Simulated scan of single mutants.
Amino acid sequence: MHNLPNFVHLHFDKSADELGDIEKRVLAKAHERKIISTDINAAIKAESSTGQRLADGIARVGGSWGFIVAFLLFLVFWCLINTILLTTRAFDPYPFIFLNLVLSMLAAIQAPIIMMSQNRQAERDRFEAAKDYEVNLKAELEVLSLHQKIDMQVLTELATLREEFAVLRRHMEASAGSVSKN
């Protein structure tokens, strides 16, 4: 890391103090030739609480076709039992007031849980975007480094060719001088 200020100046044309935390972290990884971990699932899972994981599970189940079909079957069963089969002794006769209460309570509980899960998904998206930025920045730094290495190699080869050309010209001039003397 002793050469990091030169690395920063070479790639960003500004001092290390002017860089943000993400840029500094990416530069350090690039300078050390280490990869940037992109295992988002493990990072999110490590930071999530039991309640957050439970909210994600409820949102996953509550937002599935399986839940919708099962709940639709439950509603049809409830309506059939209370209108046709139990016409004389229905425990929740038509307009199904108790069913409305159950549905309202379910919606009142399920809605905030789904909102919590959506908020976590938004956090996850922001985290993923930040990781993508880091990976893209590191890739750009690697491309810049490769360009610099290629440029240096080309300059070295040009200097070698100039020297060889100068030696060849001197030999040709010496040969031409010796031929003209004869």
Rank of each mutant, 00 (worst) to 15 (best):
I22G: 03
V154Q: 10
W78N: 02
N119I: 05
P5Y: 12
F91V: 02
I58N: 00
D92L: 03
Q148T: 09
A28R: 15
A46K: 15
Q148A: 10
E47H: 13
K14G: 01
L72V: 09
I84L: 12
D56R: 09
S48Q: 15
A42R: 09
G177I: 07
K34D: 08
M152H: 10
L137E: 13
M1P: 12
A139D: 14
A28S: 12
L19F: 12
F165E: 08
N82Q: 12
E23S: 06
T156R: 06
E173F: 07
I113K: 00
M152D: 15
G57L: 11
A70H: 04
T156N: 07
Q121V: 03
A130Y: 13
R33A: 09
E173H: 10
A55I: 04
A107D: 01
N119C: 04
S178A: 15
I109V: 13
G57N: 07
F77Y: 10
S175F: 12
A30I: 03
S178M: 12
D125H: 14
M1A: 13
F127D: 05
F98M: 07
F67L: 08
S145W: 01
L106I: 05
E134Y: 11
R53G: 00
S15W: 02
E164T: 04
G177A: 15
I44T: 09
M172R: 13
H147M: 06
L137I: 09
G51V: 05
F12P: 06
A70T: 08
L27N: 09
D125G: 11
R124A: 10
F74Q: 01
A46Y: 09
V154P: 06
I22A: 07
H171I: 06
M1G: 14
V102C: 04
H31M: 06
R25V: 01
L146A: 08
K138T: 01
F96E: 01
L155P: 02
E134Q: 15
L144F: 03
I40P: 00
A139K: 14
A111Y: 01
Q118M: 05
S104A: 09
A122T: 09
S64N: 06
K34S: 04
L85A: 07
L101Q: 04
I81K: 11
I84P: 00
I97W: 02
G20V: 05
E128N: 11
A129L: 12
V61M: 08
